[in-house]
Design a protein around this nucleic acid. Sequence first.
DNA 1: TTGAAAGCGCTAACAG
DNA 2: CTGTTAGCGCTTTCAA
Lengths: 344, 344
Amino acid sequence: MKRVSIKDVAREAGVSATTVSYVLNRTPSETISSETTQRVLEAARKLNYVPNLNARSLSSRKSNLIGVLIPQTEPGKELMFSNPFYGELLSSIEYHARQNGYHLLLSGTQEDQDYVNIARNRGVDGIIIVGTYPGRNLEALKAIDAPIVLVDSYVKDTSFHTIGIEDREGARIATEYLIRMGHRDIAFISGSLREHGVNSKRYQGYCDALQAAGIPLDEQAIYSGTVDYEYGIEAAYEYMRRGQKQTAAFVTADVISMGLIKGALEQNLRIPEDVSIVSFDDVYLAQMSYPSLTTIHQNIPEKGAMAVQLILDAVQSGRKEHTECILPLRLIERDSVKRRGGDA
Amino acid sequence: MKRVSIKDVAREAGVSATTVSYVLNRTPSETISSETTQRVLEAARKLNYVPNLNARSLSSRKSNLIGVLIPQTEPGKELMFSNPFYGELLSSIEYHARQNGYHLLLSGTQEDQDYVNIARNRGVDGIIIVGTYPGRNLEALKAIDAPIVLVDSYVKDTSFHTIGIEDREGARIATEYLIRMGHRDIAFISGSLREHGVNSKRYQGYCDALQAAGIPLDEQAIYSGTVDYEYGIEAAYEYMRRGQKQTAAFVTADVISMGLIKGALEQNLRIPEDVSIVSFDDVYLAQMSYPSLTTIHQNIPEKGAMAVQLILDAVQSGRKEHTECILPLRLIERDSVKRRGGDA
DNA sequence: TTGAAAGCGCTAACAG
DNA sequence: CTGTTAGCGCTTTCAA
């Protein structure tokens, strides 16, 4: 089946390509007689015409394409594999983009040089970037004239829109809860603590809570690795090696918690009897876990919806002012925490 | 920053646009002096030139874009949300595509009309479709002249490449294993049993095993719903309602099993003591579960890698013969099955 | 109410 | 070895 172009439709309808274009795009400034409109529509249907979006975007400079960049958390690992958070987020982004007539150009990246090129390459109308750190080659990004939304990033720059959560506060709430439940020796378990990264903020929140309760910070209570299931298991072993000092842990991601539980189990540690856990994200995994996870809930679908909305708004309005969204957080109590002693 | 085009580079380097194109694409048929090549490269770098892939694809009819279509399992639900299988698969597809210089155009779909249009719209070089049923409007799909890979679909048509697994055989192995472990009353729990769907095949395998063991099929042992966590929970309740007849269940997806375990737990049923479970997929969830899942393992990353490879091969060779891949399956023994009675 | 013409940025014969 | 000339399929002034 040969590709049918706008010209074929024009010929079939006995009009010019221009007219076809007008009809199909409902160009408001142009007014086409309803009779012609009918003929064109008919011809298009008959020929089973589908406009070529590449050509359209080439001439109109609008692609209806949103670029989504999800970082490889671990080089070599494949994209969202290690953390369902990404899957859930992407899922939501895709859904809302589609509802608005946009398609998604998906890419993982090892190095952000790619970011820029992909975007400029394909002429995307907007870009959603998940979790970049400040200080990477943002200059190049800024040069792109499509709106850019940074999700979960602490890059502060008026060139970008941002969507995030109160990481520090969330961590504080989690840790404080543990304290309120009678724990004083509380581990902090997370992915890598890069400066200005999400985990660092959560670390600060953890410290805030300890400090407020007058509990000294113990270096030995800090576990930092990668954001995946495997590290959770490892952390459990490391916990044993370090002498099982803590009765509870604040873990910065549900996946890690899942691994932690597994590792604990392997060593006959009971959760929450021996170690209580509060974690972060409230990925759907959190409720599937056994015990189910007490965790800081964030609205992941909403995050995705919002990211798309910001792009759409920016595209439509053409405005440049940047928007900064902070989504609410709350603690969900499930079964991974045990009250301890009588000092509640 | 104004968009810099090939012409700008040409001017800067003092050559024609054609030459720039030749240099940048290393067009093999054309031979450019190394001196000119240098000048062009230099100019391109200096101007920070990035080729416009839309334009390129418009004129060369090659987009370096692979369309990926993942069906909404449940309308209204967002994409891969309900089953991590999709996330893992997509992850792998993205990774391998990127390694080969391809980008991904991602879309979920409610109705397959979209399939076709998206593809034709953007001029993708190939399409990967996950889990279509036969009999949908495949005619339209066939009209697309890009190679199409159907993953986990029982559509038999030489217009498409297919990648799948021995669903029926896998189910047989799972069920047979349960029988070998001393179970005779075995539930079958799955998503919807659409004709020629993956679940139907697995149902057949389940029947095969029962029959081979001389166990009569019991209608009351069949549970069919949706492929998600929630249905698993529901199935557990339904199991109670139906009188707890079975001592084991073959479940066609790990996510459902997770829900089943949860639901069982809520009713003080012990897994595997009261009910043994063998499930299917070996999604990473399967090991996180408690008890961890004895399940039929399929190599999901390999599936994705293969899908990409098939497209790449087809594009490069231009050949039309269709390829049919069946990936191997094997049983992974974990903790969700208990041996029963003495008739092992 | 419609169409001709130019052009988006690039590649592909075909000349030279 | 390099440039000229046509498009790819569409949108967009501008004129009729």
